[in-house]
Computed example of a mutant assay.
Amino acid sequence: MLRIAALVILVWLSGSAAQGQSRFDGWASAIVAADWRTTTGEPIQAFDNARRDLTAGFLAAGFSRDAMVDVTLRPDANPVVTAEQAVARIGEAAARAPRGCFLYITSHGSPEFVVFGPDVSLTPTLLATLVRGWCGDRPTVLVLSACFSGAFIDGLAGPNRMILTAARRDRASFGCSEDAIYPYFDGCVIERLPTATDFIALGNAVRACVKDREEAEGLAPASEPQVFIGANMQLLAPTLRFDRPS
């Protein structure tokens, strides 16, 4: 079975390469800044800064602007985008680009939920339901940048899924203060994406980057970002190479 799956991937890969296409042609993507506050409620720009520069980075890596949703859920944005509107836009993008899904959410989190705008708490069950509706069985990469986001892995895991989280299920992440440019995890993704070859390499590089920064600043307990790779994605992910300038 593994040999057959590997053959299918190689045939798909050679066809894509022969046409000079990005490996992510036909992939829908969404990058969402879902909160805009410090833990004490003061407004900050860190999540939106991350959204802006993550969007630029993943466009450069080969994702299509036509199939990308890039939104902030802060209530003082112009125009305002509600959680319901963001969900609808992601669904529309996924319908237009049926080959794969990439979802990145940066926000505050707890062991029970991730903040998704002013009024919505995104629980593991709710997110799993949304992703199933958006992406079905197609290859899917999910990145959750929030405290305690490892708690989402069990509900989202599947053979066609790769999941990166900013922290263990019982750990906070760092970088959401008023003077922060980005949350630390997002900053490491932005820093390491230009030299990473694929999502597996990116996940490993980001984990090392976060560890180095937390140790340098004496932050404890360590957030310990998590990576889950389903069986099918273990074969496919190395072929999904990011675009790089020749």
Rank of each mutant, 00 (worst) to 15 (best):
M1E: 14
L2Y: 13
I4L: 14
A5N: 02
L10E: 15
L10Q: 13
V11H: 11
W12D: 13
L13H: 12
L13E: 10
A18I: 07
A18E: 03
Q19M: 11
G20V: 05
G20Q: 10
Q21D: 12
S22Y: 13
S22H: 12
F24K: 09
F24C: 12
G26P: 10
A28H: 13
S29H: 06
I31T: 11
I31D: 00
A34Y: 08
D35G: 05
T38W: 05
T39C: 05
T40D: 15
G41D: 09
P43E: 09
I44S: 05
I44Y: 05
Q45T: 15
A46P: 04
F47G: 10
D48H: 11
A50Q: 06
D53R: 13
D53L: 05
D53V: 05
A56T: 14
G57Y: 12
F58G: 07
A60R: 14
A67V: 06
M68L: 15
D70I: 07
D76N: 15
N78M: 10
P79W: 12
V80C: 03
V80Y: 09
V81W: 11
T82E: 09
T82M: 06
A86C: 13
A86H: 08
V87I: 15
V87M: 11
A88V: 11
G91F: 10
G91N: 12
A97C: 10
Y104T: 02
I105S: 04
T106H: 00
G109E: 00
P111F: 01
F113S: 13
F116I: 02
G117F: 12
D119E: 15
L122K: 05
P124L: 01
P124M: 02
T125E: 15
L127F: 14
L127V: 10
V131Q: 08
R132P: 01
G133M: 03
C135W: 05
G136S: 10
R138E: 12
V141M: 07
V141D: 12
L144T: 03
C147V: 01
A151W: 01
D154M: 02
G155H: 13
A157T: 06
N160R: 04
I163K: 04
L164H: 08
T165L: 02
T165R: 05
A166C: 02
R168S: 04
R169V: 02
R169Y: 09
A172H: 06
F174M: 00
C176H: 01
C176Q: 00
C176V: 01
E178H: 08
E178R: 11
I181E: 13
Y182F: 13
P183Y: 00
P183D: 02
Y184W: 08
F185M: 04
C188K: 00
V189I: 15
E191V: 01
P194L: 10
P194G: 10
A196K: 07
A196W: 14
T197M: 11
F199Y: 12
F199N: 05
L202G: 05
G203I: 03
A205D: 14
E214F: 00
E215R: 13
E215M: 07
A216I: 02
G218Q: 07
P221G: 03
A222T: 01
E224R: 11
P225S: 00
Q226W: 02
F228Y: 15
I229R: 08
Q234T: 06
L235Q: 14
A237G: 02
F242V: 06
S246D: 14
